[in-house]
Computed example of a mutant assay.
Amino acid sequence: MIAQVITVNEILEQALLFDFYGELLTEHQKEIYGQFLLEDLSLGEIAREAGISRQGVHDLIRRCSQTLAGYEEKLHLVERFLKIKKKVRQIEELLEEEQGSCRISGEIRPILKEILEEL
């Protein structure tokens, strides 16, 4: 059970990295990695479709994961995104607690919603 949770968390982390840095990969890398991560295709399915070996797909996916993690180590965009999102949620919770005691809360909520949508 724990292994499944870790796997789900890793998949979510890889999906975020792909969202942020995927455009920095080559077209071929984006195609293969996207099929694996987003379309949930097996290595064998991707290999057949791409006309390469299963081992080649495995190696490419591993390299893409390392490349994306390297970009995050240098740029920290995902980390910053998650921190900002958490802070916006905290503000929303505080506004919920105050509910109506402050007329400004009605003006703040749309701004917070806009920030979350832009993130």
Rank of each mutant, 00 (worst) to 15 (best):
C102S: 14
Y21N: 03
G70V: 06
L75I: 12
Q14K: 11
R80P: 03
F81R: 01
G70S: 04
E114G: 06
L119V: 05
K30V: 07
R54N: 05
F36M: 04
I84E: 09
K87G: 03
I84L: 05
V78M: 06
Y21M: 09
M1L: 11
I52M: 07
L112S: 13
G51T: 00
M1F: 03
E118C: 07
E31D: 14
G70R: 05
L75M: 12
I32Y: 03
R54P: 00
M1D: 02
E73H: 04
D59V: 13
Q90M: 07
G56C: 14
L60C: 15
S42H: 02
Y71F: 15
L94G: 13
G100V: 11
G22C: 09
K86R: 13
E49D: 07
E118P: 03
G70T: 04
Y21C: 01
V8M: 12
R89K: 13
E118W: 01
G34N: 01
I61Y: 08
E73W: 12
E79Q: 11
E107T: 09
V5E: 09
L37W: 03
G22Q: 01
S105R: 10
E72D: 02
R63I: 08
G100T: 15
S105I: 10
F20N: 01
L119P: 00
I11A: 12
E39N: 10
L43T: 05
K113Q: 11
Y21L: 03
Y33S: 00
I61P: 05
I84Y: 02
E114Q: 11
Q29A: 05
L38Q: 12
G100M: 14
R62H: 14
S42G: 13
S105H: 06
I91N: 04
E23N: 11
I32C: 08
R80M: 10
I108A: 13
E118I: 04
E114C: 10
F81Y: 15
L60E: 11
Q35G: 13
E72T: 02
F18V: 05
E10I: 13
M1P: 03
E96C: 12
V8K: 07
E97Q: 14
F20M: 05
L75Y: 06
I108N: 04
G34E: 00
N9Y: 04
K113V: 03
R62L: 11
D19M: 02
L68M: 12
L82D: 00
R48V: 09
L16V: 01
G56S: 15
E45S: 02
V5D: 07
F18A: 02
E10Q: 15
Y21I: 06
L95R: 08
G44L: 02
K83S: 07
R54L: 14
L94R: 15
L116F: 10
Q55M: 10
L119C: 05
